[in-house]
Design a protein around this nucleic acid. Sequence first.
DNA 1: CCATTCAGTTCCATTATTCGGAACTTGGTT
DNA 2: AACCAAGTTCCGAATAATGGAACTGAATGG
Lengths: 265, 265
Amino acid sequence: MTGRGDGTVGKALGVLDQVAGFGRPVRFSELLEASDLPKATLYRLLQTLTNQEMLIYEPDRGVYSPGIRLVRLAHAAWAQSSLAPIARPHLEALSREVGETVHLAQLDGGHVLYVDKRNAAEPVEMYSQSGKVGPAYCTGVGKAMLAHLPEPDLARVLPQQSFHRFTGATLADEDALRSELAEIRRHGYGFDREEHEPGIICVAVPILTPRGRLLGALSVTGTTARTRLAALEGYVPRIKAAAKAISEEAQHWRFPDRPVEAKGR
Amino acid sequence: MTGRGDGTVGKALGVLDQVAGFGRPVRFSELLEASDLPKATLYRLLQTLTNQEMLIYEPDRGVYSPGIRLVRLAHAAWAQSSLAPIARPHLEALSREVGETVHLAQLDGGHVLYVDKRNAAEPVEMYSQSGKVGPAYCTGVGKAMLAHLPEPDLARVLPQQSFHRFTGATLADEDALRSELAEIRRHGYGFDREEHEPGIICVAVPILTPRGRLLGALSVTGTTARTRLAALEGYVPRIKAAAKAISEEAQHWRFPDRPVEAKGR
DNA sequence: CCATTCAGTTCCATTATTCGGAACTTGGTT
DNA sequence: AACCAAGTTCCGAATAATGGAACTGAATGG
């Protein structure tokens, strides 16, 4: 978990993560067991967070859930710190042209965070997808991003991969992953060969700044029932073009550097 | 702001709100001016939050923005602490039937928090809308919710209304609002008569538990160019039906109370 | 070219908060 | 009645937050 080593605030945010991670209302005792904080400390932190409306406490059931204040905060984060607003029209166009589902993802603490999605067939399902996290070592976008991470960051992030074998094709360990990443770096794109879900394949491309810093990744997903890897590979130039366009816009999209300020404040 | 009186954690969350509130990357000095924290304290808090990936710091520009960790947290909040997942199919159906834009909102600290939206014309724009906040005293959903708040809560929340006069029709003060609320309570629904934006009208209905506790509100919006209040009023029974359905599902949608736990842990 | 200003960063003794073990309620069970 | 588990409160000790002031480094200007 992220919340180690930043004093009270770090611990509080760690608790927040915990509660959110459960995915359902959760009891005090469950949290106590899952965290290594002493009872009294955890208790006080929960009180503070509830007070702050970052958590909701239901007295009758004795459970905590994430609070709506988070939704408000996240709107700001999504709108300005994610690629989604910039990328949206490109996702739209890409998905229309290739007729497949398109994902936009960013890296968040070693894992894949999906920030937007355009679904070919049934167009709206979105919010339920944005904000979702997934593993990096066995998804197309995940590997595409890892492949373009500077070595120090990569080293920090690899130990966090669980290498759980979702399918027979899932990469088993760090060595396998590293050589796959080298491959991806060579081509500038990578596949998910049913490594996460059987029947689901995809091709993914990183989104990089002109100087090569990683911004995110873009993928086109298909099913083995309807599509082949070779077909997906054919989309690569189109996907790369979209990635380039997004990257450029992200560069140019600077806010007014000084928001029209009077000389003497 | 919310962050007063909960020690370090409260202050840190207050800073987070601040940064998010700016709606753009923001300089240290701007934050310093806007908050009443001493320089060194603010500085340390920003460091901690950045450390925790709740904020992103761009060294070259010297600005802070909300971090993507918030998006992850918010997904959890949205998925389990908002009505949106339950209400989604009902919004969908309602909007299809009446052919107008439909909003789902909840109350967040005296203001309206839009948690979902179904737009008649252009179907997807979602996440960018959900999470948005708006005033309570001059929107349909806002007034519908205020009208069904218990008096103590209402008293706490009314002083937070700014009563800014967006249009000529905006209610001017607490007295005007209170009598409007009484009206709404009588009918079980309320209007927005271009009180927030000229040309925009809507009808809104509260979502209440069987015992009358406020959960949220549902509205159908139109423009004066195409629609009349009377036409919107005609939708009321349909909207009320949707509100009732949502409320019922919310009641029944309890998580497994004890998640299948072994006797001796 | 040095003086001045301003934004951002660091220091550190003081102070106020947080910590957490243990004791205590509360409510349910045998 | 005794027991047990979950949740809540206490309080002295330990720690972390505080914030005034001093420092750095870049930009401005005389």
